[in-house]
């Protein structure tokens, strides 16, 4: 077997998607199966951890089988099993971790633990080779981070949210204007046709900080809606969405651009579920049009939670010799820098 033919089977169950993928040589997707639970969680207006864990148990072997079938490979051909160790919902992580351990044990395969955010970043490598140093803007339901990478598998968090994640703020604002869960895509859709006419704050924090804060913005939106309704005024949801989105995006894009310049990176990678946001994509493309670094944005299906990204990150860890024992556990607050 030549050096780049290793097949990584990866499992991802950190939140509400049961996902298994098989990736060849770290970059070639042979299969990428995602069983989404979103329809089930919609009725609760958000992901219910116990319900998510139950669905994972129901789906896990079905998704495993489909991933092997679609890839046209047998388990005997797999080189290593990668799995999301954390962060995420602990009960959900445990399903993937224990399935991965059982597989590794049954076939005497190396077991490779993967950080979920490393996975989101490595989704990029499935479409474009990475060039270091690079900067990744990670934006998802649970994360808003700027991560600097000087080489493969090395992560330095240079900025992170001090309160809500961007995706969380999207969901809360969506609830305020009665949009269904999950709110992010709805706000993005409304923002496209609305106008950013409402003045909302931008949290720049200290001048040299790459940290984020979205709770003030979220409160400002709630207050604006509340005050308007008390005065009997009507706010167009489209305009509110556009104004909110403009504030979020301006801060994200500006801090990313500033960090990219200061760190002299060759690439800027967008990662995480919020990377599906059209407004954010457009603003980043605009801002980096003339920059002397390359902007990489993965296709939508690789931005949301999936296991191909875990396989891509797992491949690097596998090559570096990282292995987990059968004592591997799900770690809800796993640190990417550790």
């Amino acid at each position: 077997m030549s050096e780049n033919n290793e097949l990584i089977l990866a499992i991802e169950t950190s939140c509400d998607e049961t996902a298994v993928a098989i990736v060849k040589g770290g970059t070639e997707i042979l299969s990428n199966v995602v069983a989404s639970q979103i329809e089930s969680h919609k009725r609760f207006g958000g992901v219910v951890p116990e319900v998510a864990s139950r669905h994972h148990v129901e789906q896990i072997t079905i998704v495993l089988e489909e991933a092997l079938e679609q890839a046209g490979v047998t388990i005997e051909e797999i080189t290593a099993v990668a799995v999301t160790e954390g962060p995420g919902l602990v009960g959900a992580l445990l399903i993937g971790v224990n399935a991965a351990k059982a597989l590794a044990f049954a076939h005497n395969l190396p077991l490779v633990p993967v950080h979920h955010i490393a996975g989101h970043i490595y989704a990029n490598r499935l479409v474009k080779e990475m060039e270091f140093p690079l900067l990744s803007l990670v934006v998802s339901g649970g994360h808003t981070e700027l991560i600097y990478m000087k080489e493969h598998g090395s992560y330095e968090v240079i900025g992170e949210t001090r309160d809500d994640a961007a995706g969380e703020a999207y969901d809360k604002v969506a609830r305020t204007i009665n949009l269904p869960y999950p709110g992010g895509p709805h706000i993005d859709r409304l923002a496209e046709v609305g106008e950013a006419t409402i003045d909302l704050p931008r949290a720049w924090l200290e001048p040299d900080s790459y940290d984020f804060s979205f709770s003030g913005l979220k409160s400002a939106v709630i207050n604006t809606v509340h005050n308007a309704s008390q005065r009997g005024q009507e706010i167009r949801p489209e305009d509110l969405a556009a104004s909110f989105q403009a504030s979020v995006i301006e801060v994200l894009v500006e801090k990313t651009a500033r960090a990219a310049k200061e760190y002299g990176v060759k690439q800027v990678l967008l990662a995480g579920g919020v990377a599906a946001n059209k407004g954010l994509r457009k603003a980043l493309e605009e801002r980096f049009k003339d920059a002397n670094c390359e902007l990489v944005i993965p296709p939508l299906f690789l931005c949301t939670d999936n296991a191909a990204m875990i396989a891509a990150a797992g491949y690097i860890e596998y090559k570096k010799g990282k292995r987990a024992e059968l004592t591997l556990n799900g770690v809800p607050g796993l640190d990417i820098e550790a």
Binding site: S53, R54, V57, T61, G91, L94, K101, A102
Partner: peptide, 19 residues
């Protein structure tokens, strides 16, 4: 225990399926 039950069931299902 919900979590305990799921750990055993996940391992048993995965072993039975893959073997």
């Amino acid at each position: 225990s919900y979590t305990g039950v799921r750990i055993g069931v996940t391992i048993a299902k995965t072993l039975a399926w893959t073997l």
